[in-house]
Amino acid sequence: MASDTPIVLIGDRAEVAPRPRGATAKLRPGRFALTVAALFTFAFLYVPIAVLIAFSFNSARTGATWQGFTLQWYERMLSNPRLIDAAANSLIVAALSTLGSVVIGTLMAIAMERYRFRAQAVWDGLLYMPVIVPEIVMGISLLLFFASIGLERGLITLIISHIAFSMPFVYLTMRARLADFDRSLEEAAQDLGADEWTTFRRVTFPLLLPGIISSALLAFTLSLDDFVTSFFVAGVGSQTLPVYIWGQIRRGITPEINAISTVMLILSIVLVILSQALQRRQSSH
């Protein structure tokens, strides 16, 4: 008993409550340290974001001293036509590229999961590549491509590019879902007299729908968040929101950027809540 260290005792006291069997005694001493480390990391992640939100309501034009609450930066943001245009562009590009990448990626996933054919491993590797290749290479190569075929940069080039980088993510998500899919359900439907198309419509598609929705959310977020690729393939009149924000930041920090950033943050939080709610609904089925 004399060999008891105080840390062990602290760990022990923290662990009086029943715990999952197997969480071993020997990792307990670290529990306190782990908690502290985790709290510091979460603080590191969140303090800059919280400060940014707070300062979007600060009436001071420059500097970081608090000079009173204001909503003027939000008003100014809403009355800025270039910003509204950029936001509209972002939403159009995100919506259309999501639609495209979900359709293309899902079909690809079905093909790769349900069929066995030659050179399949090559295709698998190729589909991984856009995930691995640095964004900057992707953006520049697309810029060179559009320049060499003479396609004017604009919303079309943005949508094409966004489909190109988000389709592999949809593919990977859907392929994982398809791998878990119980094919005897489809066999049961056909056994009960449904043809291939009816089976797809009434059984396969409804069961894949949660996966399709979550991969759509992923594609939508990827598109909204993208800066580097959009920076290269957007035309002068077709800036997306991140490209516009980038330009503003380069010109100097204004409280208006804080306001825009806050709005974008809230949008991300909404998307996270949506996807989490979706996952919970799925797991409850």
Partner: peptide, 22 residues
């Protein structure tokens, strides 16, 4: 040794185990 008794003692081969790790 995965759990420690709240009270009492475990002896292995006559030796009290106390907080001896597994």
């Amino acid at each position: 040794g995965f759990e420690r008794p709240t009270s009492g003692e475990v002896y292995i081969d006559g030796k009290p185990m106390g907080s001896t790790p597994p």
